[in-house]
Design a protein around this nucleic acid. Structure first.
Lengths: 249, 249
DNA sequence: TAGTGGTCTAGACCACTTG
DNA sequence: AAGTGGTCTAGACCACTAC
């Protein structure tokens, strides 16, 4: 096997008109490492050479190798630990990233018009499961919002949200005009949170709100978010049939 | 506002016992930039100072600022373009990453025993929608696999897969012993692919296979994968009720 | 304790894109 | 044409951790 960036000398003979131009720099190293893994030169679980060794082999600086290996580690292909070295992941996971836009933009992105109906807004004691999820004392007063999002005037998404009122400014935002999600994204500091996706048969209430037959399969998204250790909001989104969540590759 | 890494001089007075220790290095810069965005010092859509300016302000090398800003750009908080500079994203998207392990490990990770029933295996002409999805000529012969995955002996997941037979080695793997997914992960070069999640009511057939009432809401995952421009596989996974897909924060 | 990856620096050149 | 981010280098120190 030839050494690495086989000096692409003027690319005199167009061998394979690849759709992607041959990568250069750290991306070339990433590609070569991936190639060796898939060619089974480096087996799952095995330790690969150190950054310094690879830098010598490839004739580049260690930082460049580091960039490539770090990228592969973030992608789940490699596992790295100081002193232990870099190993080929034994059980590679497919890692997918989702872009979750604000609902309004999601609807408008399909070329549909967006609408919003605030069905309920009330300060209520947090139900036990919600309080538990958010790590709050039971019966903490929370703002309860039920919102129907519309696409071209038709039900698109039914949202049930519990929101920590301590976050709101004194003249509270008008959640009949701007969705809570959209307001939060722009006004509440960076949040950690977890998201879960599942499926559920529509309850009688959900069916009525969304204009569906009871029992229709709904795609459900549930989110909890915190700012630092302060609970912000817990929300359940029930999407009308036809909704698909896509990964960005 | 004081300059940046207010030299944490021996941290003489423990002011706030933060759960997370104050970040240092490029993470501190990332934190500071995020802080300025959320404090509305830098508004959405606005251009922030150049890397060089920030490096001067923070008293560090430009590469360190670059690391922090690149990270925030990957997270969707900033948008960067050469010559144009770095802007605060106008419409921040919540970006979530999913780890999608092989089914066997997903089941075992819950402490349950894993089982596998290969219900069907046949070489069939690709149906039109499958061929179209994968970019193959209609009626290309594909290996059709229907597999029921079990957790503690109970139906967990029903998988319907179309697989390009050109990829298989001569003694084909025994898909009754190892799931196609698990075999592919270990033996087929890195793939690009897209994944879609949705919900559907169980068909009569799905209900029977999974031991459910027809119409039960099922969580559906559909994947298409390619290696370069060669189609590898298209698969539909129907999960038994109770399944939740979680993001890793 | 010694080996390995994580990070930082100061400087440089290059690629892209806006004006 | 010029400004900005993208990347590379050669060297250095440090943090973590397996041995």
């Amino acid at each position: 096997m030839p050494d690495w960036p086989a000096p692409v000398v003027a690319a005199s003979s167009p061998a394979k008109p690849l759709p992607r131009p041959a990568p250069q720099g750290w991306e070339a190293i990433r590609a070569e490492v991936l190639h060796r893994i898939h060619a089974r030169l480096w087996l799952p679980g095995a330790t690969i050479p150190t950054e310094e060794a690879l830098a010598q082999e490839f004739g580049c600086a260690r930082a460049t190798v580091n960039r490539a290996l770090r990228d592969l580690a973030e992608a789940g292909v490699l596992e790295r630990r100081r002193k232990a070295g870099t190993r080929v992941a034994l059980h590679p996971v497919r890692r997918a990233t989702l872009d979750i836009p604000v609902t309004r933009r999601e609807v408008e992105g399909r070329g549909q018009s967006y609408g919003l109906h605030l069905l309920e807004q009330a300060l209520l004691p947090a139900p036990v499961p919600v309080a538990a999820q958010l790590g709050l004392a039971p019966a903490t007063p929370l703002l309860h919002l039920c919102t129907l999002h519309l696409a071209d005037g038709r039900p698109f998404l039914y949202e049930v949200r519990w929101l920590n009122p301590a976050l709101l400014p004194d003249p509270a935002p008008d959640f009949a005009a701007i969705s809570a999600n959209e307001w939060l994204v722009g006004h509440v500091p960076y949040t950690t949170g977890d998201i879960a996706f599942s499926a559920a048969n529509a309850t009688a209430h959900e069916a009525e709100v969304l204009g569906l037959a009871p029992g229709t399969a709904l795609f459900i998204t549930e989110r909890c978010t915190w700012s630092g250790d302060r609970a912000i909001t817990a929300v359940r989104l029930a999407y009308a049939p036809g909704y698909r969540l896509h990964t960005m590759v």
